[in-house]
Structures are given as structure tokens and as C-alpha cells.
């Protein structure tokens, strides 16, 4: 009886309430202290003024299965809020790619030679890595930010910032960012569903300093909370900051690369 009562509460309360929360979050203002923390790391991680070319190597580990390896070449221009991703490995994925311009993300499938419109936070090749990790971020636009205390991650003291989606056009309506006090860079991110179930935890293991006070992560680990034992390790190699020709940031470039 007690169990049944809890089920009914879970159903009639949690889901509608969580949807209602997002409606509220849409209007509510962020906590200035939380906003300052987020703006600080975004200023360091958004690479405006730089063209960045790099190669991500993703190794997806799943219990009882052989490791899955993906290699993706990334062309990024944050000043224009755009990036192009091209799959290079394995052969089965080669030629596939993403093109993002602002809020619009398109997946190019060489098999059909067509572009499919995707959520801007699509996962990459079925891994725990999402395309929003590759470009410019503007969390304040999408989330209401609030401070959620402090925590220690590994050996670092961190501020915890809670993010609640202003609109439901985001993959994770609730997030918690753990930002280390030493340099203001995030070291851990917890992603939650609308009903606040933990879906994934990302650990930013290492960063590389680019020109000025700009950073790019070089190693991260994404741990799936629902698929027990599923992890994706991402390493970022071959980072260059030379100018990228404009035509790379077009759909035509993706089509051309698959030929």
C-alpha cells in the first residue's frame, strides 16, 4: 500500500512538477554569484578570436563488450558560433559529420547524401559525448544559474553551480557544474533528466592553455549513470590555432569531404 502510494506520488507529482519548474526557470533570474562563476569559465573556454583545429579520439567502454573507438576532426570558430565535425574513424562512420551554426545543428549522412536537423546537443556516434562540448557555450541563455554549495572533487575545492533549463530545448534540463577555485575551470559536470535522475557525469581531467587566458580541455571522461559500466574517454590531440578557410564552415564542405 505504501509502495503504491509512493508510485502515485512519483507519477502525479514529480513529472508535472518538474515541467512546471522549467516554466518558472524560464522567467526567473540567475544568482549573480553563480553567473559570475559560469561567465568566468566560459570566458576562458570560449575561444572567440581563435580558429581551432583539433582531433578528438573517443574510446567507449562498455561492460562485456569490446572498446569502441571513434576519431573526429573538429574545426571550430567561436566568434561565428559555428563548428564542423568530420568522422575519420572507423571506416563505417567515415564521411559522416556535423555542421553547427548558432542554434542549428545538422547531421550529414553520406549514405543518403542528406542533412538531418538535430537537437544541438546530439550525441556523437552513440557515445556519451555530445556535440555541445565542441563549440561555444552560453549557459546563462539556456539555464537559470544558482549556487548549490561547495564540494571537493579529487583534491580540488569546488563551487557547485546548479543549472535549471529555461526552455526544454536542451539535452539535460538540470545540471550541476563543479568549478575549482584555483583556476575557475570546471572539473566535473553532472547531467540530470527533467525528473532529476542522474544520467551522466563528466570529469574534465586536463586542460591545455592556448593564447592569452584561453583553455581547451585535452582529456575528459564521461560516465553513463544508467548504463552501468559504460564510460567514454575523450582525448584531444593535434590542437592548432591557425586560420581556417571560411568554406570549411559550410554544409558543402561536409558533402565534399565524403566524396
Amino acid at each position: 500500500m505504501h509502495h503504491k502510494f509512493l508510485s502515485i506520488v512519483a507519477f502525479f507529482a514529480v513529472l508535472p512538477v518538474s515541467a512546471a519548474c522549467f516554466a518558472q526557470a524560464g522567467d526567473a533570474k540567475s544568482d549573480p554569484a553563480a553567473t559570475a562563476i559560469v561567465k568566468a569559465f566560459e570566458d576562458r573556454l570560449n575561444l572567440e578570436g581563435l580558429d581551432v583545429t583539433n582531433t578528438f579520439n573517443l574510446v567507449q567502454k562498455k561492460e562485456g563488450e569490446t572498446d569502441r573507438v571513434l576519431q573526429v576532426k573538429v574545426f571550430r570558430r567561436d566568434s561565428a558560433d559555428t563548428f564542423t565535425l568530420i568522422f575519420q574513424y572507423p571506416e563505417s562512420e567515415k564521411g559522416k559529420g556535423y555542421y553547427r551554426k548558432g542554434d542549428d545543428l545538422f547531421l550529414y549522412l553520406p549514405s543518403t547524401r542528406e542533412f538531418a536537423y538535430r537537437n544541438r546537443k546530439d550525441d556523437v556516434g552513440g557515445s556519451d559525448i555530445r556535440t555541445d562540448m565542441f563549440g561555444k557555450s552560453n549557459l546563462e541563455d539556456q539555464y537559470r544559474l544558482s549556487l548549490a554549495g561547495r564540494a571537493t572533487v579529487s583534491k580540488w575545492d569546488c563551487d557547485v553551480v546548479r543549472l535549471e533549463a529555461r526552455q526544454l530545448d536542451v539535452s539535460f534540463p538540470i545540471q550541476k557544474w563543479f568549478v575549482r577555485k584555483t583556476d575557475g575551470l570546471p572539473v566535473k559536470v553532472e547531467n540530470y533528466s527533467a525528473s532529476e535522475t542522474l544520467l551522466r557525469t563528466i570529469y574534465y581531467i586536463d586542460y591545455r592553455k592556448l593564447s592569452g587566458d584561453r583553455f581547451i580541455f585535452t582529456k575528459l571522461l564521461a560516465v553513463d549513470a544508467l548504463e552501468k559500466g559504460q564510460k567514454t574517454l575523450l582525448t584531444n590531440d593535434g590542437i592548432e590555432t591557425g586560420a581556417i578557410p571560411n568554406y570549411v564552415f559550410t554544409k558543402a564542405y561536409l558533402e565534399e569531404q565524403s566524396r
Binding site: 508510485s7 512519483a10 507519477f11 513529472l15 518538474s18 537537437n119 544541438r120 546537443k121 533549463a165 526552455q167 526544454l168 530545448d169 536542451v170 539535452s171 539535460f172 534540463p173 547531467n191 533528466s193 527533467a194 525528473s195 535522475t197 544520467l199 544508467l226
Partner: peptide, 8 residues
């Protein structure tokens, strides 16, 4: 809308 949701 794109956002993940979960339930039991």
C-alpha cells in the same frame, strides 16, 4: 523538445 526525461 530535446530534453531528456526519466521515470520509474
Amino acid at each position: 523538445f530535446g530534453a531528456f526525461n526519466t521515470g520509474t
